[in-house]
Amino acid sequence: MANTESLENVVLELRRGVIVLAALSQLGAAEYGYSLLKKLADLGLEVDQGTLYPLLRRLEAQGLLESDWKIEESRPRRYYVVSAEGKKLLPKLKKEWAGIVSVMDKMLS
């Protein structure tokens, strides 16, 4: 029981660390929150709404995302897209990630 709980906590921590990069990488084209959530899930990364929406707002406040309201199917939807600053940051983050993956591969192989 305690083992399962520990595993869940560690997995949660690991995922939390990659959500920023995952979201930025998928917002080259504008997406609204729910469509991004589904897109990430389809790619294999299940993210809780309570984590993703506040994160999108935070990334926007940091200037890495831009957002815009659009009316679609008679419903207002907030679309997020990577900003110019975010575009500059993304390759650096990808490089960091590749470094981490390479190091961890070495450690775990």
């Binding site: 729910y34 929406y53 707002r57 309201w69 419903r75 907030r78």
Partner: peptide, 17 residues
Amino acid sequence: KGRKDIEKELRSTLEDM
């Protein structure tokens, strides 16, 4: 800050779901 915006986005998400 941005309470109305959060409410609007939440409603839109729930309706989508």
